[in-house]
Amino acid sequence: DHWEIRVGDITIHLKDVDEEIIRWVEEALRNGDDLEEIKRWVEEVLR
């Protein structure tokens, strides 16, 4: 699977990601969370 999350001008590409993570990231972006923080979290989860 390949996911693209778009929020404003930001697009995040994710592969082999659980839908729950996608929802979490979308929510975090909508809440204005720091992008670097989100990326770190996702990388942590995917490890």
Rank of each mutant, 00 (worst) to 15 (best):
H2Y: 14
E43N: 10
E43K: 09
D33H: 11
E19H: 12
D16K: 08
W24P: 00
V45F: 15
V25E: 00
K39M: 14
V42A: 03
R30A: 10
I21L: 09
E4P: 03
A28R: 15
L14Q: 02
D34H: 12
V45D: 01
H13S: 10
H2G: 09
I12L: 13
A28G: 04
K15L: 06
L29A: 02
D16L: 12
W3T: 04
V25R: 00
I22K: 11
V25S: 00
E44S: 07
D16H: 13
V42F: 06
K39P: 01
V45K: 12
V7Q: 04
E27L: 15
R30W: 07
L29P: 00
D9I: 11
V7L: 09
R47Y: 01
D34T: 14
G8T: 03
W41Y: 13
T11Y: 13
L46P: 00
D33E: 11
E27W: 15
I10W: 14
V42N: 00
D34F: 12
I38K: 00
E27G: 07
R23P: 01
R30D: 03
R23T: 05
E44F: 13
I12M: 10
D18C: 06
R40C: 00
W24A: 06
V17T: 06
V25C: 02
I5R: 02
H13G: 05
I22Q: 07
D34N: 13
E26V: 15
D18V: 14
E43Q: 13
E44V: 06
L14A: 04
V25W: 02
G8F: 08
E20S: 12
I5V: 07
G8N: 06
K15S: 05
H2I: 13
I21H: 03
W41F: 08
E19R: 10
E43V: 11
E20C: 00
I21T: 06
K15D: 08
N31T: 06
K15N: 08
E20Q: 13
H13M: 12
I38Y: 04
E36K: 06
R30E: 04
I12V: 10
E37Q: 12
E26N: 14
D1E: 11
I21Q: 02
L29N: 00
A28M: 11
A28S: 07
E4M: 12
D18M: 14
H13T: 13
I10F: 14
L35W: 08
W24G: 02
E37D: 12
E19K: 11
E26C: 15
I5E: 01
E27D: 10
D16M: 11
E37N: 10
K15V: 08
I5Q: 01
E20M: 10
N31D: 02
E4K: 09
A28T: 07
I22N: 01
I22H: 04
D18Q: 10
V45N: 09
E27T: 13
D9N: 08
V7M: 06
I22E: 01
R23N: 04
W3G: 03
I12K: 02
E44H: 12
G32A: 07
E27K: 15
R6D: 02
L14K: 03
A28C: 02
V7N: 03
V7H: 09
D16W: 12
R23H: 05
K15W: 11
E43Y: 15
V7F: 11
E26Y: 15
N31Y: 05
W3R: 03
I5L: 13
R23L: 06
W24S: 03
E4D: 04
R47S: 11
L14S: 04
E4H: 13
W3D: 02
D18K: 10
E44G: 04
G8C: 02
I38G: 00
W3I: 05
E37H: 11
T11C: 03
R23W: 05
E26T: 15
H13Q: 09
G8D: 04
W3E: 02
R23Q: 05
I10Y: 13
D33I: 15
V7I: 12
E27H: 14
H2Q: 09
R47I: 09
E4F: 14
E44K: 13
H13I: 13
I10E: 04
K15I: 11
T11G: 03
V42H: 00
I5D: 01
G8V: 05
E20F: 15
I5W: 10
H2M: 13
D16Y: 10
I38H: 00
V42D: 00
K39V: 11
D9F: 12
R30N: 05
H2D: 06
E43P: 00
G32C: 09
G32H: 10
I10D: 03
I21F: 10
V42P: 00
R47N: 10
V17G: 05
L35R: 04
D33A: 10
T11E: 06
E37C: 05
E43C: 15
V25T: 01
E37V: 10
R30V: 05
I21D: 01
D16Q: 10
H13D: 08
H2P: 11
E19T: 11
A28I: 10
I10Q: 08
L29I: 09
E36W: 11
D18H: 07
T11W: 12
E44Q: 13
G8P: 01
L14Y: 06
D16T: 11
E4C: 14
E37S: 13
T11H: 07
G8S: 05
I38R: 00
D18I: 14
R47E: 06
R47P: 03
G32S: 10
G8H: 06
E37A: 14
K15M: 10
V42W: 05
D16R: 13
E43M: 15
D16A: 11
E36L: 08
E20G: 07
E43S: 10
K39N: 04
L46I: 07
R30H: 06
V17Y: 09
R30S: 05
D1V: 12
N31I: 04
W3P: 01
E44R: 15
L35N: 04
I12H: 02
G8R: 03
W24D: 01
W24E: 02
V17W: 07
D34V: 12
T11N: 03
D9Y: 08
I12S: 01
K39G: 03
D33G: 11
R6V: 06
I38E: 00
D33Y: 13
V25I: 08
T11M: 08
R30Q: 05
D34L: 14
I10S: 05
D1I: 12
I21K: 03
E19A: 11
V17K: 08
D33V: 15
E37W: 14
D9S: 11
V45A: 14
I21P: 00
I22V: 10
W24F: 06
D16N: 13
I12C: 02
L35A: 06
R40W: 02
K15T: 10
E43W: 15
K15H: 11
I21G: 01
L29R: 01
V42R: 00
D18E: 06
D18F: 15
